Every structure is written in C-alpha cells, then in structure tokens.
Computed example of a mutant assay.
Amino acid sequence: MSALICGSFAFDTIMVFQDRFKNHILPDKVHILNVAFHVPDLRREFGGCAANIAFNLKLLGGDPLPMGTVGKDFAPYAHWMDQHEIPRTHVKEIEDSYTAQAFITTDQDDNQITAFHPGAMDFAHEVQVGEVQGVKIGIVSPDGRQGMIDHARQFAEAGIPFVFDPGQAMPLFSREDFQQFIEQATWICVNDYESQLLSDRTGWSPHEIAEKVEALVVTCGGEGSHIYLSGKRLEIPAARARVVRDPTGCGDAYRAGLLYGLMNGLDWEVTGRVAALMGAIKIEQHGTQNHSFTRDEFHSRYRESFGRELDLN
C-alpha cells in the first residue's frame, strides 16, 4: 500500500551563535535593530514536512509517495532522495523559483531567529492528488495554502482516507477553513499548542473534533501523546530517548509512525507507540533525515521503551 504524502520540501540552513542574543540586543533599541552574529558552526540539512515524513516512513519499511513543488536548486536534494530510494515521480520543479528555505540562527539558550522563504512551496496547488494512481491513504501536511486546501478536497472527492496535519501552516487558515478540513479528513494530528489553537478557531473541543473524524492525535513532546477516539482518550507514553540533540523534525517522524500503523492495520495503542518511538529516535540526531535503524534495532528499542514486544504480523 502506498501513502501519498503532500507537503513541503525545504533546505534548512542552521547556524549556531556561540553566545546569547540577549547580550547583543539592546531592549530600548529594538525599533532600530541592526545586529550581526558571528556563527562558526553551520549545517545545511534536507528538510520539509513531506520529505521528512517520507524519509521516516521508508525507514519503517513503508511505501511513501511524496508530492510537492521544488525549485531550480533542487538537484542535491534529488540526489539524496535517489540514494535513499524515495520516489520523485510526483515532485514538480518550478523553474523560476527556489526550493523553500529556512535560515535559522540558534543561540546558547536555544532561542532561534528564523527567516523562511517559501519559494516553490507556494505553487503546491500545481500538483494534484488525481495524478497519482494506486493510493490508499494520504496526508496533507504543511505546504502552500492553496495546495493544502486543494489536496484535502481532492482526497475527499476521491474517497481516499487522509490525515490532516496543519502544523506551522495554521496561521494561514480561517475558522471556516478549519471546519472544512475537519469535515473532509479521516484523522487529524496536531501538537498540544496546535490542538488548543484548533479548538479556539473552530469552537470545538478535542472530544467534539474526535466525534467528527476517526481519531484526533495530539502530541505533547516529552509527555507523550493523546489519541482521542469517539467517547474516549488513549494515553500514549513517550518513548525513551538515549540522548536529546535536536527536536526539529520529531513531529514529522511521529506522523510517519502514525501512517505506518494505519497502513498496516495496527491498533491505536501500538500505532501510537510506534509513532512515539520514531520521534525519540529522531531526537537523538541533528537534522531531520540523519537517523537510521534496522528492523531488529527498532524492535529492541520498542521493547526497551514500552516493556512489551512489537508484533507487526
């Protein structure tokens, strides 16, 4: 079974400032802010929600089909995807644009200053769900506004069950937009902050939202996650991370685990734990696509974290 993963592709340029922003920003001068930070540490990572989810689903042995729009500078990313056998058949290059890019400077207090250029992501509506054959499940993850609206509608019209994952795109949508997404989606996945914002925007509590879909999944970082089903809420514990290095991309790794469980008919207790373990494995590495594991290692980590065997048969 293939999963169509709609969302962004991006280059993340990450710089580390070996000091604290507060030591160099004068509070009474922020209206004329003009600062420069010397950043000896720099990494350029492959990112974007669709690509991150696809990378993690591939690690689990799933069959991802990422779909989105990229720019004229995509060649090194394309090579990376080819190396990891992630298909690019539904990735469209926009000739006059750059691939979406985030420029992130982090200080010693883990504060971040980020500039984001959407570039080709704003053309996500130019690729369509109907162009893909043989898809049984999908996800609409953060992307260009019109692309997310179109892809949700196209999944619903095609009768393909899908996860709605608004993420950092939440500010792009109105109350009416969110209500429409919820009516169309099969499942919804948000973090705890986004869950509160979704309730505030729609006027519906998590339990009320869960009555309109098959499940509402709310991640809570190190506190685990909640899965709201009709009339009840499951408490999923966090998996044990051996070291915490970089939380960026943990949500995408969790969503890959969620898709894997749904694609393989796992129950929610197991699906939530598989997803939680994916997030824990990711947090142990810098970047969003630099981790790996074997099937045996994953089973061992599952047993270590949850005190039970993982049965995928």
Rank of each mutant, 00 (worst) to 15 (best):
F298P: 09
P206K: 03
A280V: 06
I283Y: 09
M1A: 11
I236C: 14
Y260R: 04
I227G: 14
A238G: 15
D19W: 00
G265N: 15
Q196V: 08
R201V: 01
W268V: 00
E45H: 09
A50R: 05
L57Q: 09
S174V: 02
G7N: 10
P27I: 02
G249K: 01
I188E: 15
K72C: 08
M278D: 03
I104N: 14
A10R: 06
K29D: 05
T69K: 07
I25Q: 08
I86T: 07
Y98I: 05
T105Y: 06
A50M: 03
A276N: 09
L60D: 07
P142C: 08
A75H: 10
E235Y: 10
L229M: 13
D41R: 13
P142S: 07
G47E: 06
T89K: 14
G167D: 04
A241S: 15
I86K: 08
D73G: 05
S300R: 15
C49F: 02
V244A: 07
G68N: 08
C49E: 07
F17D: 07
G61E: 06
T69W: 05
H38G: 04
F298E: 13
L259M: 12
D246S: 07
V129F: 01
D63H: 06
V30I: 15
R153P: 02
F116T: 02
R233D: 03
G119W: 00
A3M: 01
H38D: 11
E269P: 00
Q289F: 01
A256K: 01
L259E: 09
A275G: 12
G119Y: 00
M67Y: 05
F293H: 14
T99N: 13
H79L: 09
R20D: 07
V135R: 12
P40S: 08
S195A: 15
V140R: 12
A253Q: 01
A100T: 05
N313G: 10
L197C: 10
F181K: 03
N56K: 02
A156D: 08
T271W: 04
I137T: 04
A50D: 03
N52I: 02
N56S: 14
D73S: 05
